[in-house]
Simulated scan of single mutants.
Amino acid sequence: MPYWRLSGYYFFYFATLGVLVPYWGLYLQSVGFTPVDIGNLIAILMFSRIVAPMVWGWIADHRESRMAVVRLASFLTIASFSGAFFGSSFWWLAAVMLLFSFFWHASLPLLEVFVMRHTASRPGAYGRVRLWGSIGFIVAVTALGPVIDARGPWWVLPALLTMMLGIGSFSLTLPESEMRGSVEHAGPFRQALLRPEVFAFLLACLLMQISHGPYYTFYSIYLEGYGYSKTLIGLLWAFAVLCEIGVFLVMQRLLVRVALRAVLIASFFLAAVRWLLIGHYPESLAVLMLAQTLHAATFGSFHATAMQLVHRFFTGKHQHRGQAIYGSLSFGIGGAVGSFYSGHTWVTLGPTVTFNIAAASAGLAFLVALLLIRQDRS
């Protein structure tokens, strides 16, 4: 497996996310958009994350030259995002965001299949590649903040373009021969999708991402309201991702000793605990640090285990669409629903109740996994 080339790809892919998530809204605000406009534009990113992986997964499952699909998506991302330098009207940026996110969301699920094929015999080895994405996120988020403070939000544009060029460059280094893989017949995709344990797994993942809505949407605003400085808030975000990296490093040894199902169930349970801690003890920095430590479970062990299960559930020609539907349902639909409900309950019911709802959603994921996902037999 071309470890360093794949690690470089992950680094730049998630470094792009590390620029986009914290700073894209600041750029939109700087060019005069209202909060409603900004919300509508960012919703486009969520929408494309629901649709794009399924479209590109179907294309990849019907082609032998899958790396060509990755490269095409990577360079169309660069070309379409370049439009952001040539206009800043609402409809112009809406078109740019729709196009670049459609292509950007396409390539990662295809690479995930490739990595899982090479690491499936070593449970947890996936995390040693994926951790470079977390490192990329931290580097981008910490490096760009001072630049924006000193020179303004316009620098988000060249930063994003640079990260996307990194994605494209590393896609050129990955060999097509190692991406071809197996295309054997695996039965109808619908049949694989509707197996009870697969349906239960996808439902639990959907509920897990719904539970993250208040955290990703309002965590910084929430802590600022309790008097925490922006510097400290940023450090709490970074600390959580460092904990995520830690769990990626130990997953290979952990999954040799502990069943996938057990790790997944524990991740759901700890997510419920995390949201309760954040919702009820915001005044305590020690409790908030403990809650951020649990990011190791709510993203790290959860995602690493989910990737193993997707690879196990969807075989042969269905692997790319399996990865795509996992991403579309959990991070796409789950993320969109989580942001939507938390936006409404935050104002009407308050932060504590909103995080209680998040904990309930993670608790439902725990029950679904506990009762409906079968015990590992491997």
Score class of each variant (00 low, 15 high):
residue 2 P to K: 15
residue 6 L to A: 03
residue 11 F to I: 00
residue 12 F to G: 00
residue 13 Y to K: 02
residue 17 L to R: 11
residue 18 G to M: 03
residue 24 W to T: 12
residue 25 G to A: 15
residue 27 Y to N: 03
residue 29 Q to M: 13
residue 31 V to G: 12
residue 33 F to E: 05
residue 36 V to M: 14
residue 40 N to G: 15
residue 42 I to Q: 13
residue 42 I to V: 13
residue 43 A to N: 13
residue 53 P to S: 08
residue 66 R to H: 10
residue 68 A to I: 10
residue 68 A to W: 13
residue 71 R to L: 06
residue 78 I to W: 12
residue 80 S to D: 04
residue 86 F to M: 10
residue 93 L to F: 06
residue 98 L to Y: 12
residue 98 L to T: 09
residue 110 L to G: 00
residue 112 E to N: 07
residue 113 V to M: 00
residue 118 H to M: 13
residue 121 S to E: 15
residue 126 Y to C: 03
residue 129 V to F: 07
residue 130 R to N: 02
residue 136 G to V: 04
residue 146 P to W: 06
residue 147 V to T: 10
residue 148 I to Q: 08
residue 153 P to T: 05
residue 163 M to K: 07
residue 165 L to V: 11
residue 174 L to T: 02
residue 181 G to L: 02
residue 187 G to T: 01
residue 199 F to V: 14
residue 205 C to F: 03
residue 206 L to A: 06
residue 210 I to E: 02
residue 212 H to T: 10
residue 215 Y to E: 10
residue 222 Y to M: 09
residue 224 E to R: 15
residue 225 G to D: 08
residue 225 G to S: 10
residue 226 Y to T: 05
residue 232 L to R: 11
residue 243 C to P: 03
residue 246 G to H: 08
residue 247 V to P: 00
residue 248 F to D: 00
residue 259 A to K: 15
residue 265 I to F: 07
residue 270 L to E: 07
residue 271 A to Q: 12
residue 278 I to T: 09
residue 282 P to D: 04
residue 288 L to W: 01
residue 296 A to T: 02
residue 298 T to Q: 01
residue 300 G to N: 07
residue 320 H to L: 11
residue 323 Q to P: 00
residue 324 A to R: 06
residue 325 I to A: 08
residue 326 Y to H: 04
residue 326 Y to W: 11
residue 336 A to T: 08
residue 343 G to T: 10
residue 345 T to S: 15
residue 358 A to V: 02
residue 359 A to D: 03
residue 371 L to M: 12
residue 377 R to A: 13
residue 377 R to T: 15
residue 377 R to H: 13
